[in-house]
Design a protein around this nucleic acid. Sequence first.
DNA 1: ACGAGATGTCAGAGATGTTTGACATCATGT
DNA 2: ACATGATGTCAAACATCTCTGACATCTCGT
Lengths: 73, 73
Amino acid sequence: MGKPTRVTNRVRALRFAAGEMTQANLADRVGVTRQTVIAIEQGRYSPSLEMAFQIARAFNVPLDDVFQYPEVK
Amino acid sequence: MGKPTRVTNRVRALRFAAGEMTQANLADRVGVTRQTVIAIEQGRYSPSLEMAFQIARAFNVPLDDVFQYPEVK
DNA sequence: ACGAGATGTCAGAGATGTTTGACATCATGT
DNA sequence: ACATGATGTCAAACATCTCTGACATCTCGT
């Protein structure tokens, strides 16, 4: 619905790297719904800052490891 | 309006540190309105991830230098 | 063949973030 | 005294993000 975001992320990769972590697992850990995880993995929109922090924490990595913002506009 | 956020920020400090940067200046640079800058500086809500990235870029610092997320919940 | 788990789609309702515009206060300089 | 710029408040419209729930597809194990 929203305009596609410029922010990219490595959520899916990190999730697999973390072992048997499913979308539902991650959603639980972060405290959001599976829908939201799906939408983010697909880059349909960028999450709120709070959620971005929580996701990074779920993987125990800094925020910049999960989300990237392209150089210029 | 929104529930107060857990995310804290150093926008105001960075703005002063950057010299004569006013709220309106920053808002322009980042592409948002002055209202939004005010609300964020006051911690009334946390910005979107995109905006957080843009703000960090406006100050030429990493995102974690501007926004912090407290340890636990 | 069947059931269960993981991923995905769709649509609508609800919550949060952003804009617009009008106006108030304080400090500064002329 | 007046004008200007910087900061702040308020309220309502608007945009974006998140949730709920129902359902489809694929894979895997039994």
